[in-house]
Design a protein around this nucleic acid. Structure first.
Lengths: 344, 344
DNA sequence: GTGAAAGCGCTAACAT
DNA sequence: ATGTTAGCGCTTTCAC
């Protein structure tokens, strides 16, 4: 920023007109005569004039920038969300500032602060796993900055939200395991305070119930990353001989446990069928390819941005929070058993 | 931004002092008496005052924000770079604005423009695959905005750069294939205008030469994504019986071709050994795990940000461009054959 | 049709 | 120790 890009004042001085004339000419204000307008426009073009977005935001009290807070962009689901947001945002003239919380509460607080400091017009947030205190979001809410929660939400704050039907997704995939002959299904889940994890676990339980399978509490382990699979290695291998399927809360955990079992002599899916959640690209690259449910990250991002734009356009909209629930779709692959012929 | 967050003027009015007093008190200017300072600080705290970053940037002509342009955050290598950048940036009080070019030239031009409009202090960029015209970057350079190229660089512009030793990486991995008994090695590469692809291809050729293996031009195919593997499916399967190894320009292409070959009855690595480039997490999750070279994305990001900070601190530094070359490290896994015992 | 002036939020040189 | 003023880049109301 040192080298002073040309400003409206520079143009005004150079052309011997006032700054306001330049400003008007550049935005085709009808008052300005065609002559001056052309002269100014030509000059602006020549010196490659670009309006200072900072000054504009300050003046207009609108930054045309929205903030995104996302746990970790490395995960395909999250980066798909971002792409969905960006594509809508760009097409409507918004910029985005992306912040990663790294699943860390205090980093998330800093992110909120930084985005507020930059006077973003609105916030799109996917809450960190470790967040249990929501006061930073409440402060956003109290300042009436529109905010949309994505995927991971906060029940205590009444905002628009875009979520996956985790309950049904888990129910569908667990039912699929049952239909293909599995009865003793291990669930690798998140800590229960994470709502999506809770809902997926409930969906799992619901599927068991609908199929009259008794629930065995030992068949739920908190284990939601490859690292945790490694930590729980002994426990999992001990249980393995007694189960015929695993439903993991996400795909990379599913893949990690699949590799663990394969390396220990289990046949997938004959000994143990495995299913994940999310349809990460990795699902099609592993052997056998992973059965999972597709979560529409890109579309969720688009929808969230659209909701935010609606709020921005209708600031006084005291209308009820919008809730968009995305259904998931089963992606049946070779890591689970085939449906009996009669069922097909 | 509608709901007017409290400003310094609001505080001044409320407390019956002038704005400058508030400004000074808040930053512990020695002139301000302890009494007023405490009074002001307490009040600011109470109303949760936060300086407007936009106004500050405008005033100071420094935004403390740096722009990142990256092809696609979905790729692990790129998101690692971003994490490296962010961690250094945050620790030095910088914010980042991340833009994706989606490997698209005109999107990249827009990104540059948007970041300039926001008056970022500097730019960290990894050029899009499809970019052949660099005038947008030259304009940044001419405006004396410090810029560091990462991984994919532009030779025509004299800036700091942080790159991988692609030539040596490719040489190391090709040599490894040769050492383990392979002689007819197919290379799946990028379009030759992409410098990293060019260098990797040269490294491949160099390894052949060093080992007195004649180069067969039919053994280089432009094919650098899973989609392109699919498009080149027939060609690859036709060549497959005549080769004993494949070196792919990146890991996801390597994995895609591995799956193609496995599904067509080839044994990996006995029939065909496969090696990638980058050490994406996927490399350890596939079966057999992929031999590849590790590219230090996170460290490269850190280094690039450090270089940029140096430039920012020394604006008049007419010193030569810094070039940091990161070596890669072989990650030997099961997708390539074992070294003969005598070599170990 | 064009210019002068005020103000967005903040800082700093210059008063007092 | 505190206030006044001007200005960062821009828009907009009000003059002429």
């Amino acid at each position: 920023m040192k080298p002073h890009l040309t400003s409206i004042n520079d143009i005004a001085k150079a052309l011997g007109v006032s700054a306001s004339t330049v400003s008007r000419a550049l935005k085709d204000h009808p008052d300005i005569s065609e002559g001056t307008r052309n002269r100014i426009k030509a000059f602006a073009q020549k010196v490659n004039y670009r309006p200072n977005a900072l000054a504009l935001s300050l003046k207009k009290q609108v930054s045309n920038t929205i903030g995104i807070i996302i746990p970790e962009i490395v995960h395909h689901f999250f980066s798909s969300i971002i792409s969905g947001i960006e594509d809508v945002a760009y097409s409507k003239g918004y910029r985005v500032m992306i912040c990663q919380s790294n699943e860390d509460f205090s980093r998330e607080e800093m992110n909120v602060q930084a985005l507020m400091d930059h006077r973003v017009d609105g916030l799109l947030v996917c809450i960190s796993k470790t967040t249990e205190d929501f006061s930073h979001f409440k402060s956003v809410y109290n300042n009436q900055i529109p905010m949309v929660f994505l995927d991971r939400i906060c029940k205590e704050i009444e905002t628009d939200r875009v979520i996956t039907d985790d309950f049904n997704g888990a129910r569908i995939i667990t039912s699929h395991l049952i239909k293909t002959g599995c009865k003793r299904i291990l669930h690798l889940g998140t800590l229960p305070q994470l709502l999506i994890g809770h809902d997926r676990q409930q969906g799992y339980l619901q599927a068991l119930k609908e199929n009259h399978i008794d629930f065995n509490p030992e068949l739920i382990i908190t284990c939601d990353t490859p690292v945790k699979v490694d930590e729980n290695r002994d426990k999992i291998l001990e249980i393995a001989p007694h189960i015929d399927a695993i439903f993991a809360v996400n795909d990379f955990t599913a893949v990690a446990v699949m590799n663990l079992l394969k390396n220990n002599g289990f046949d997938i899916p004959e000994d143990i069928a495995i299913a994940g959640f999310g349809d990460d690209p990795i699902a099609t690259m592993v052997d056998p390819p992973l059965t999972t449910v597709e979560q529409q990250g890109y579309q969720m991002g688009q929808e969230a941005m659209n909701l935010l734009i609606d709020r921005l356009a209708n600031p006084e909209g005291s209308k009820q929070p919008d809730v968009k629930i995305f259904q998931v779709e089963l992606r049946e692959r070779k890591s689970t058993r085939q449906l009996p012929f009669s069922e097909k």
